[in-house]
Amino acid sequence: MPFSRTPPHLLIPFASHAGVACRMALHELDLPHLQALLARLTPSGEDRQDDTSLSPPHERALARARGLTPVDGQLPWAALAARERGLPGADDGQGWGLLTLCHWQVGLSEVVLGDPQQMGITARESDALLAVVKPFFEEDGLALFPGPQPGQWLVHGTLLEGLATASVDRAIGQPLAAWLPMGDAARPLRRLQNEMQMLLYTHPVNDERATHGMTPINSFWLSGTGPAPAKAQALAPAPEIATQLRESALQDDGASWAHCWATLDASTLAAWRARADAGQPMTLTLCGPRAALRLENRPRGLGGWLRARLRKPDVAAVLEAL
């Protein structure tokens, strides 16, 4: 089937979360449109791993939706971005990574990764830091390029070939020891991180951020290191991604997460429910920390339609299983 005929697809990351506050809020959710969709749609696949996988369920689901075969820790986001931009070396699709500027929160016994999306890094700051750090990376055969958005860079070099890396979304708020790439292949990268921490500590960009009470940029996170598919392989368009739950889930803010779920249900999911009620083909994928559940609107007879109308799925139980 040509990708132009692919049914509309809605992907919802952080539909559940392992944090205590979000787990408590889960059973208080009132999501009538999601409940109706769960009654009408048919499960068509589940991707279940544990919450120690490097690639979270929503990123694996995105890869599958685009026609890629996900390999844990080696999703090709950087190589695909380099190819889209026509960067030097992009044609081979190998040895690419996505560097995200971030803040490592140093505590008494552990170092924790803060959420880079909450740092407000500007294009001016990102470009200024890129110019300073480029020579350090080049000494290790790594070329740096501006990335998809401020605070992200694309990096290319043979050191990255075959290297598995954890998604930023997997590591946020967690002690970093379990998520950093280890082994001999990652040793130059760990050294570069140490050098960057010392370099960034005294950089004027951080001096200016400090005057405005902003979190300093003191490190980078490497992810998206998988090889891209052959250029001849056409990828399906990306699904619509609902991002509303991400921030509150990562902060384990149960009240805010429940509010965001209610807003999402009353707006986006209400429209998708109307599509389902009209019999339109569609796909919904719900993602939590351990699993992604894919559901589709499939033709059904009158009996199936009536049963779907009468069903009242346990929304909390479905989300809790993710």
Rank of each mutant, 00 (worst) to 15 (best):
W272T: 05
L159A: 15
P135L: 00
L130I: 07
L159C: 10
R209K: 09
P188S: 09
G93A: 08
P148I: 02
R40Q: 11
A128S: 13
A274F: 01
L29M: 07
L37C: 08
T100E: 14
G279N: 09
T158V: 13
R275T: 00
T215Y: 00
L101W: 07
A78R: 09
S55R: 03
A278M: 01
V111Y: 01
W305L: 15
L99Y: 01
A171W: 06
T165L: 01
R60N: 03
E46H: 07
Q233S: 11
L295S: 05
R300N: 06
L129N: 03
L68M: 11
L142Y: 07
P175V: 10
A292L: 04
L80T: 11
E247A: 08
D51T: 03
L99K: 07
H58Q: 10
T268S: 07
L310D: 07
L10M: 07
R190F: 00
R60V: 09
Q118L: 10
A292G: 04
G147N: 06
W153L: 10
R246Y: 02
D253E: 08
M119S: 08
R66Y: 03
P239Y: 11
R170M: 04
D30H: 14
L62Q: 01
P175K: 10
W96T: 03
H203W: 02
A232E: 14
T122H: 06
A131W: 00
T283A: 04
A186Q: 02
A321K: 06
Q280Y: 06
N206C: 13
D72S: 03
P188T: 06
P43G: 05
A271L: 12
D47G: 06
W221I: 05
G107C: 08
S44Q: 15
A65E: 01
L176D: 05
W305E: 13
M196Q: 11
V132D: 13
L54D: 09
G213P: 09
P148F: 00
L322F: 10
S167E: 14
P216Y: 05
P237E: 04
R311M: 12
G226N: 06
L180N: 07
E84A: 14
M119C: 01
P32Y: 05
D127P: 02
M24L: 12
Q280S: 12
Q244F: 00
P175F: 04
P32R: 03
L160C: 09
R246K: 14
